[in-house]
Simulated assay, not measured.
Amino acid sequence: MTGDSTVSAVVDEITALGPFFAVAVHPPGSEPPEPWQPMSRTLLAARVAGVGDWLAAAGGQPPGAVEVRVAASVAHLGLAARLVSPALAAAVLRSRALAPGFADLRWQHAVGGPIPLSLPHDAFAGAAVGSPSRLADELSSRLLDGALRELADAMGEFSVSPHILWGNTASAVNGAATMIKAARPDLTARTRTITALLLERPPLRDASTTTPDGVFRRRSCCLIYRAAPDGKGSLCGDCVLSH
């Protein structure tokens, strides 16, 4: 296991990139005190309901006006971003494949911003991985096919298709990369390389594409436009429906 000072340095460097990267750390095999809790069907349902009510209020609609699957897709996109962002940052900044198990994650219920996330201390263990290609392999097999697949499976219970959920995950990867490049322009080339390699690997291989001029486009829609009154909201910049 890496020492406490090393973990603190990694966490500080990641967290400095912004709120979607911020993480707390708890000892492995222990339970951090409330309000931290493991992800559960109850917590997911509360998150989906809270996001639905927030979207409805933003559109001047009553609670319950937004379709459950729309709220679930938007909630999933936010949760996927919370897992992807610190992991991509650790890969770019420290050449580490940060991929904690889903059961080891701890969350706090909060609506209106990035949901608080705590990782086990031993998620930071292990040596740095040398090449960007190996980093992408590790993140694909351990994070995308691990915690993010479990999250997608859980959110699928709210009638959101896997096509949309993996599109959300690809969008979260691209969003994290955009934030890293904005915060650390000196890491732009490395961020682009690792991101492109990750998006080429399963299960994201068919979830997005890159235009000839280098613009990211997902191959699905997160459905947020349907949250507006009469389902006539604006489309996201990377949406398949806007092109």
Rank of each mutant, 00 (worst) to 15 (best):
R69A: 05
L105A: 06
S140R: 01
P38G: 13
Q108D: 06
R205M: 12
P100F: 01
A72F: 02
I224E: 01
V240A: 09
A176H: 02
H109C: 07
A90K: 04
F102S: 12
E138K: 03
A58E: 09
V48L: 02
R226S: 10
V129P: 02
T2W: 05
R192W: 04
A183V: 07
A196N: 04
L144H: 03
I180G: 00
L143P: 00
D12T: 15
R41I: 08
N168F: 00
V10K: 04
P32M: 12
S242H: 02
L105F: 05
Q37H: 13
E150F: 09
V70M: 09
V173Y: 07
H163G: 06
D12S: 14
H121Q: 10
I14D: 00
P132T: 13
P185A: 11
D104T: 15
W166R: 04
A228W: 01
P86A: 06
L77Q: 00
C239H: 09
A45D: 13
L148N: 13
P28I: 09
R219W: 10
G29A: 08
C236R: 03
R96V: 13
G59P: 04
V51I: 09
L135K: 06
A24E: 02
P32I: 06
L77K: 01
D122L: 05
N168R: 00
A57P: 00
V111H: 00
A196H: 06
A152H: 03
T211C: 04
A227W: 01
D104N: 10
E150D: 14
